[in-house]
Structure formats: C-alpha cells, structure tokens
Amino acid sequence: MTNILLIAFAISLIYMGIANRLSTYINILAVQGIILFGVSFIELIQINTINLIFILFETIVFKTIAIPLFLNYVIKKNNIVREAEPFLPDFLSVVIITCIILGSFILSNIITGVHIQKMFFLVAISALLSGLFIIITRKKVVTHIMGYLVIENGVFILSLSTGNKMTMLVNAGITLDIFVSVLVLGVFVNRIGNTFEEMNVDNLANLKD
C-alpha cells in the first residue's frame, strides 16, 4: 500500500511540472500532505501513540490544511497573478522531472550495501531534486516556497524510511518544517509583498556586481 501512495506522490511531482496555476500548486501540496499522512500512518503504526498523533497531526493539520490556507491567504493579500510563469516551457519541465525520477531510480540502484527501502529513497530524492528544479525555474517568490515545501515533503518521506527506530529524527525533521517554512518564510513573503508591487524574482535582482 505504501508503494502505491509513494507512486501517487511521484505522479503529483510530475503533475506539478505541467500545472500552470498557483491554485493547482497549492492543491497538489495539500494532496501530498494527505499522501504523507497515509504513508506515515502505515509505516509508524507501531511507535508510541503520542509520537504517532504528533506526526499525523503534523501531516494533516499542518501540511494539508494550514499551509495551503496560508499560501492562499498570501496570494490573495498580495494580489499575486494566478499563473506560475515558469522560465521554461511546460513540456521541458515534464521531461526534466521525468529525467529526475529516472536519475533517482538509477541512483537508488547504484547505491549498495545499505538496507533501505528503495521506493522511499527514489521518491525522496526525486522530490528533493524536483523541488530544487521548481525553485530554479519559477518566477515568483511564492513558488519558491512551494518548491521548498516539496523538498520538505521529500525529507519527510526519507525520514519515514528510517522506520520506527528513529522517531527522534522524524520529529526533528518535522520541527524544522514548522519552524522554518512558516515562521520565517511567511513573514518575509509578506514583507516582500508589502515592499514590492509584484512578487517576482525580477524585483529581487538588485544585488549584483
């Protein structure tokens, strides 16, 4: 069952490549939150209840509800144009994300000697690289945060793959999640929205030589 959920997660990454509206991105992030909820529920059912509740709370309340609502609020408040405005044509985005998944697959097979669930590794690395790719190729500051959240989801998946031995590590990752992605980035997004008329990276290119 986990495998199916992970495949669904990877499909959502591909879909992110062709999505051209910000609301679609937000929906994808919410869906990823639900998928992560499913995966963590199945994988971590044996650990102690408080930890489990914390993680499930984090995936459902935080990733699925709070972040999408917050991003929607940011977009509305700052009158951000609804299109994602990538630098690359969408077709190339899909091809590159597919190549990323292919590369992660090859990587997961080259790496030997350690027992890891390869599916988790594959999806986590793909999410990391796709997130970076989205950050690089999208024009808006909000999409940068979305790319960052995709990376976070990848990290979450990877920390789930350590299984129920490493609950400390999983919790650390989640704390990082809550701390950085919302507290700091959110504050700055609103500041950027207040300072500049449009939240494009074009406005953030004054510092150069």
Binding site: A124, L128, L132, I135, Y148, I151, E152, G154, V155, L158, A172, G173, L176, V180, S181, V184, L185
Partner: peptide, 9 residues
C-alpha cells in the same frame, strides 16, 4: 534553509 535541509538529508 535549503542548504540546511540538504544537510538534514
């Protein structure tokens, strides 16, 4: 943040 996340991985 991205750097520190990569380190976390």
């Amino acid at each position: 943040s991205i750097g520190i996340t990569i380190t976390f991985i």
